[in-house]
Amino acid sequence: MANQQHDDYLLQSLITGDDKGIKEIYRKLYPKIKAYIISHDGSEDDAKDIMQKALLQLSARAQDKDFRITSSFDGYFVTICKNLWRRAAKLSKSRVTNEVVIDLVYEEREIALAAYEQEKWELFQEKLLEISQNCREVLAFFFNKVSYIQIAEKLGYATENTVRQRIFKCKSKLKEAIHSDARYNELKEL
């Protein structure tokens, strides 16, 4: 209970903009974030930047009355930061290969886009829990680009074709689970 209260206090400080509570988040989590970023090819400035962006993003999302963190505040916050770092890598890669033409985007829009993407990512993760354990396992390999043959070997399927059929069915179930969730449609609202 004490933990939960402390977590609530931290989140509340981000909703109202209480710098004492936010400093507490820095004390508790900045060293972890910094260690993560530095061990993933980033600098200390990158760590500071990710920390700020994660706090702003979470504040924007937590303004919604229905917003809840289902895990611990710490774990949740670290996940946001890891995703933001993955996002930064993707952005810089897109820039280098010119896949996307990127204008200088205003800070607020950038944070809003990241918040949206994180929200969608969370929904997609949650939906994975609605398909069978076996499907989750096959799809985890598939989405992380493991070949059909390798999946067959790892999971003991007789042929590549059986794996294909299995993946097709599992993807279809997962797609259905996402599609029928009202929150997915909400994300797509214009």
Binding site: A60, R87, R109, L113, E119, K120, N144
Partner: peptide
């Protein structure tokens, strides 16, 4: 799904999107 579930990737949505949610977050910020 292909992008979101790929652990090495990240789905970047169109920066000029008019999704209500994005605009909502932006206007709060």
């Amino acid at each position: 799904m292909d992008t979101v579930y790929d652990e090495k990737n990240w789905e970047l949505i169109d920066r000029n999107t008019r999704y209500k949610k994005v605009e909502h977050y932006e206007s709060f910020l």
